[in-house]
């Protein structure tokens, strides 16, 4: 891809190329992630958007290798700061998780252990990767709670998760994720379960974080409006593949893939008041076995004979590529 060559190697936090993750084996195997390539740079917020089941979470879990029992990475490479993760041992991955790559989850109500105090859980996360005494860890946990703006942090240390609101719990999750100053933070729908005011706080917090620490953030969401203001580049995923990848402003100003266009037409955008919303009928397919043509073709208004052949990602602008036969002004293939 054009963008990758522009990057200085130490500027790239994560480089995923041609990643394939399958669930199950044999002819019934589902292609959860099917040939996904992208890079995330230091200090960048990289958005991944798509409907449920499009493979965006599966991509995240592939990076951390936290796949379901029958899932495995079958092909491709994940370079994290120059280190190949697909061949790393399980023990090596465990050292990495929570230390250099951290993740926060969709539902803060259920992602904390209900039987221990929030403080002890942050301390435990710290002690997992750092050598210090329990007292030091406690002080560090309180410091982290202050960083994520938990009021009265010292006394809230011994509160239980059920005594916290959803937004506060998500901030505790972020505190745990920050405990070891990660290079990459994967946020899987971090605000989906929260109301909009809390969402603004959490996202504002992530923004501040990447400015101050230079952490690379992968922000996974189905909410394109959220990405519009809060990401640098966006990958649109559909049926396990990236169908369009572009800088955020490009995606919104000049969407090239019919799926991206359909997504944008189906959601309200604040600045256009008279816009009619166009629903997108159908659901994304689960890809089992070989692909027969463009996976979006069955729902695509532009589908033609040519679409029964699988399209490749094609460049259609600076750092902009789309997986469609009808991307105008892009005669050359990406690969």
């Amino acid at each position: 891809m054009a963008l990758m060559t522009d990057d200085k190697p130490d500027d790239v936090a994560l480089a995923v190329s041609n990643l394939h993750t399958t669930i199950g084996t044999g002819p019934g195997a589902v292609r959860g992630v099917d040939g996904v390539s992208f890079t995330v740079r230091r200090g960048e917020i990289f958005g991944i958007a798509g409907e449920s089941g499009s493979g965006k979470s599966m991509t995240a879990f592939s990076i951390l290798r936290l796949l379901p029992t029958r899932g495995r990475i079958s092909e491709g490479s994940i370079l994290f700061k120059g280190e190949e993760l697909t061949t790393l041992s399980e023990a090596g991955m465990r050292k990495l998780r929570g230390d250099r790559i951290a993740m926060i989850f969709q539902d803060p109500m259920t992602s904390l252990n209900p039987v221990f105090t929030v403080g002890s859980q942050i301390s435990e996360a710290i002690l997992q990767h750092r050598r210090m005494s329990a007292t030091q860890a406690q002080a560090e946990a309180i410091r982290l709670m202050e960083i994520v703006e938990i009021p009265d942090a010292a006394s809230r240390y011994s509160a239980f998760p059920h005594q916290f609101s959803g937004g506060m719990r998500q901030r505790i999750m972020i505190a745990m994720a920050l405990s070891c100053a990660p290079d990459l933070l994967i946020a899987d729908e971090p605000t989906t379960a929260l109301d909009v005011t809390v969402e603004k706080q959490i996202i504002g917090f992530l923004q501040k974080l990447r400015r101050e620490t230079g952490v690379a953030i992968m922000l996974i969401t189905h909410n394109l409006n959220l990405l519009a203001e809060n990401s640098d580049r966006i990958a649109i995923m559909y049926a396990g593949q990236i169908v369009e990848l572009a800088p955020t402003s490009e995606i919104f100003a000049n969407p090239r893939h019919p799926y991206t266009q359909a997504l944008l037409n189906s959601m309200p955008r604040g600045h256009i008041s008279q816009q009619r919303l166009v629903p997108l009928a159908g659901v994304p397919p689960r890809i089992v076995g070989k692909r027969s043509g463009c996976s979006f073709a069955p729902r695509c208004p532009m589908a033609q004979e040519l679409c029964t052949t699988v399209p490749e990602l094609r460049d259609c602008g600076v750092g902009h590529s789309a997986r469609c036969w009808f991307v105008e002004g892009s005669p050359r293939h990406d690969k």
Partner: peptide
Amino acid sequence: EYVLAARALGFGSARIIYR
């Protein structure tokens, strides 16, 4: 999800089972 979160924090199986 908190078990998944624990794994994402790098905890091993023994600790996840016990804690």
